[in-house]
Amino acid sequence: MTLLQVRGVTKEFVTRGEGTMARRSTFTAVDDVSFEVELGETLAIVGESGSGKSTTARIAARLLEPTAGTVVFDGQDVTKARGRELATFRNNVQVVFQDPFSSLNPRYTVERIVTAPLTYQGITPKGGRRAFTQELMERVGLNPDHCRRYPAQFSGGQAQRIGIARALAVNPKLVICDEAVSALDVSIQAQVLELLMRLQRESGFSYVFIAHDLAVVRQISQRVAVMNRGRIVEVGTRDQVFGDPQDEYTKTLLAAVPRINPEWDARRRGKEAS
């Protein structure tokens, strides 16, 4: 079942020109982008800075309005949704951001942060907020006894788990991860990726996973869209895009990824396997 359809989305920003006689001009950040996300799958959107991947994610999350094009969620055109319609959409689509500390209110306890999406909807969870929070914390691998602590009392990886718990509070059908593991140390990153994949297996929702790191994308996604200068230059299954890239830019991107010397790596893993 197709969960999300982004059709012909374009986003222009008005920029101030250079110099004293500055003339305003428009910059096209996203240029006629279309893609679909099936229920339960992970679509990664990968690209370098300025490729338009985050703008695309923000449009899909209805955090930005596109200049042209439509966003269809669950069969409903939500491009211009307001009021109750938008509230329903927000109940189904959640976002996890890159920097956990700037996306968590430092003055709120974990309990208040995690239940905030429910509070906005005027819902009180069954069994109370405390029990609800503690259950979610357990699901994302946090100590439930810490539900009255503040974000600053957690490490970066733990704070990102709080952000993930908040996204899951409304039981969404789609979670948009915008560089959600980019700021984390490699060992923590591996754990959070593992968590994201486990949660998807448990609950069957979809991810739109925005990232610049191709190796991370390869681990988590089933399908991959490669963006360059506002356009999707290539989209396909993970194995197609990584194993047999068609577009020149995709090939350049893949070739540029630094690799651990494959011979050394194979020797180490051979030894450790035996």
Binding site: L193, A215, V216, I260, D265, R267, R268, E272
Partner: peptide
């Protein structure tokens, strides 16, 4: 040497770090 550290790490922490690196190939 880079070769020794990457092909035959002696320390547990190095091994853990190497295992955590997502691979592209």
């Amino acid at each position: 040497t880079a070769e020794q550290v990457f092909s035959a790490p002696r320390h547990e922490y190095t091994r853990m770090l190497l295992d955590a690196v997502p691979r592209i190939d």
